[in-house]
């Protein structure tokens, strides 16, 4: 299309007589956008849980948690983390277990869903971490209270940090000029 025609068409658009759209159409548009920009917390948490299930299964293959390993044998990454001491190892294991999930979620979930998590991060990440701990209790993992608290703290902080890191990377990527 030549520039002259583009110019004419754009002028026609700019000078178009304004007409009010029907209220029903306007309401449909606004409500659909509103729903899209405000996803339900339950739906977002379900998606996060699904992502976490997959990454947890992968993580448990090379880094046992509370002595529980999904595939293979041996200490895996625990062997490396034990260099930080018992409690350092628990912090690192917890951070890895949930951190990978949140990092992946930061790139898989939609921006509005990530915002939902960030707006309720303590509740969401706390719930995710508690559910994970509950899973290990269910499979009879070797859980000692003091170590569990340390693991919980590591998991919470690790997931928080990786969520923010993923958000920053994605936010900067998304808002670079195309």
């Amino acid at each position: 299309m030549n520039k002259s025609k583009v110019r004419d068409e754009f002028r026609e658009f700019m000078s178009a007589e304004e007409r009010t759209p029907p209220p029903g159409v306007t309401e449909t548009i606004l409500s659909r956008v509103r729903a899209d920009l405000n996803p339900s917390a339950a739906r977002v948490f379900s998606k996060l849980l699904a992502i976490h299930s997959v990454t947890a299964a992968v993580t448990l293959s090379f880094c046992p948690q509370f002595g529980f390993r999904l595939l293979g044998e041996g200490m895996g990454l625990m062997h490396v983390f034990m260099a930080f001491g018992t409690y350092g190892c628990m912090v690192a294991c917890g951070a890895l277990f949930t951190g990978l999930s949140l990092l992946l979620a930061a790139f898989i979930l939609r921006g509005e869903e990530i915002r939902k998590i960030r707006d309720n991060r303590l509740l969401t990440l706390g719930a995710l971490t508690l559910l994970s701990l509950g899973f290990f209790i269910m499979v009879d993992a070797e859980i000692v209270f003091s170590l569990a608290v340390t693991w919980f703290a590591g998991a919470l902080i690790g997931s928080w940090l990786t969520l923010e890191l993923g958000w920053m990377i994605r936010f900067r990527q998304a808002h670079q000029p195309t």
């Binding site: 026609e12 658009f13 700019m14 178009a16 007589e17 304004e18 007409r19 009010t20 759209p21 306007t26 548009i29 606004l30 956008v33 509103r34 920009l37 405000n38 921006g111 509005e112 915002r115 936010f171 998304a174 808002h175």
Partner: peptide
């Protein structure tokens, strides 16, 4: 609207330009 998902920003853009779009 693009970076923060600001619903009010979309609603304002819609209010400003819906009439012209509909007319066009």
């Amino acid at each position: 609207y693009r970076t923060e998902g600001d619903e009010a920003a979309f609603a304002t853009l819609y209010q400003r330009h819906a009439g012209r779009v509909y007319g066009y």
